[in-house]
């Protein structure tokens, strides 16, 4: 069978599908001071999984606000800098108007994912941290 660390080199998704892969990628991003990219990506997925029902409404609103505040509000943050202004406006409007939709962070997540696929992920595959692991 293919060892997990070789699978991690196939695609970003195969890396993010494996707990050890996530931990190593996170350690690398932390070293590069951009671990927030990965946390934001998972936060978006987690948010989408929260079912919109009466029991969850308060939690979803609180969580949407928390994600917005932590990763998007500060324009100098590593995540915020990688998201298009129109996408940030859209999310801000959703939060302000309390229109909390499961897919409200999807576009921002896609933008961060593309950035990781083009930039941090290929660099990770050439990094000492990955090569030492393999």
């Amino acid at each position: 069978p293919t060892p997990p660390y070789l699978k991690w080199a196939e695609s970003l998704h195969s890396l993010l599908d494996d707990q050890d892969g996530i931990n190593l990628f996170r350690a690398f991003l932390k070293q590069e001071e951009c671990a927030d990219l990965l946390d934001f990506w998972f936060a978006c997925s987690g948010f989408r999984k929260l079912e919109p029902c009466d029991a969850n409404e308060e939690k979803r609103l609180k969580l949407a606000k928390a994600i917005f505040k932590k990763y998007i509000l500060d324009n100098n943050g590593i995540v915020s800098r990688q998201i298009k202004p129109a996408t940030k406006c859209f999310i801000r409007d959703c939060v302000m108007k309390q229109q909390i939709d499961p897919v409200m962070f999807d576009q921002a997540q896609t933008e961060i994912q593309s950035m990781m696929e083009e930039n941090t992920y290929p660099v990770f595959l050439k990094s000492d941290i990955y090569l030492e692991y393999t």
Binding site: Q19, D20, F42, L63, A66, K70
Partner: peptide
Amino acid sequence: IDSEDDLLQECISSAMPKIK
């Protein structure tokens, strides 16, 4: 009441793969 950070952490963990 959960703090914002706890809520975020719980959300991030919920999206991670559980089974290796």
